[in-house]
Design a binder for these strands. Structure first.
Lengths: 130, 130
DNA sequence: CTTATTTGATTACAGGTGTAATCTTTAACT
DNA sequence: AGTTAAAGATTACACCTGTAATCAAATAAG
């Protein structure tokens, strides 16, 4: 699947919210936030189809669009790519950056602790006997 | 400062390794990894200058280039932008993704714990009396 | 059935990007 | 001093992007 551009992503992102969806559904959702011309959104939908990021099925004259990639997958690959490029693949410097800049609050810390605890539980078998 | 493209970033990134640096220095460093034509690198340097991402000072006929933005700043802004776009600004889902995909090892977890411990130490004053 | 409207398809068009080749200036060699 | 070589500046060019307008087909309205 070819790379999705910034604006194409914004369209894809509202499609992920709920799908299948018609062009008008998508335009309506987008207009909550962006002020895009209807034609612009249609163009982006078209390009997403050409890039095999979404597909459609005809319902009469209207199309109902559906993502071809899961948001989770996309998000994972984008995250990993960024961590690779900027931090040589290591996650912790990214987290350290957020911590330093006071971009974390007590709740974020609590969630991180939970993630770590879960990881350790899942991986404790390997440490048995170390 | 205008947005730096993917290839421009690769050039900037080797300049960050050590600067000031001549075009030839940079070309040499890049050729360890990429197979770029000398002319291509020069073009990218030129574009980085036009975008005010780097500057140069003439040393005879050669230029010595220097970054105008710190890697840390760039990295922070890229990280935050991605977390904003993909995770509504919350860091923990990104970390959770890495944890789930087995992209973390024992050392990564240890580093994350340290980051959290430091954060808590820095922020313990606010919890005094809670 | 003819016309107006809606919807997707095609075309537009300036600016960015990847990837160089050519031009120009200046320094080095003969 | 004249010619060559090296370095940066300018130009090239196809494809991508953002942002629509126009075209064409199909449906709805009269």
């Amino acid at each position: 699947m070819k790379e999705v551009s910034q604006t194409e992503f914004e369209v894809l992102d509202v499609l992920w919210q709920q799908y299948p969806a018609s062009a008008n559904d998508i335009i309506e959702r987008l207009n909550q936030q962006k002020e895009w011309h209807e034609k612009t959104v249609k163009t982006l939908l078209n390009r997403l189809v050409k890039k095999h990021a979404i597909s459609f099925e005809k319902q009469q004259r209207r199309y109902l669009y559906t993502p071809l990639i899961a948001r989770d997958e996309y998000v994972e690959s984008q995250s990993q790519s960024l961590v690779e490029r900027l931090f040589k693949g290591k996650l912790s410097p990214l987290v350290a950056g957020f911590a330093k800049n006071k971009d974390l609050d007590k709740d974020d810390i609590a969630e991180l602790k939970n993630i770590i605890a879960s990881w350790e539980q899942e991986n404790e078998a390997e440490n048995k006997g170390n």
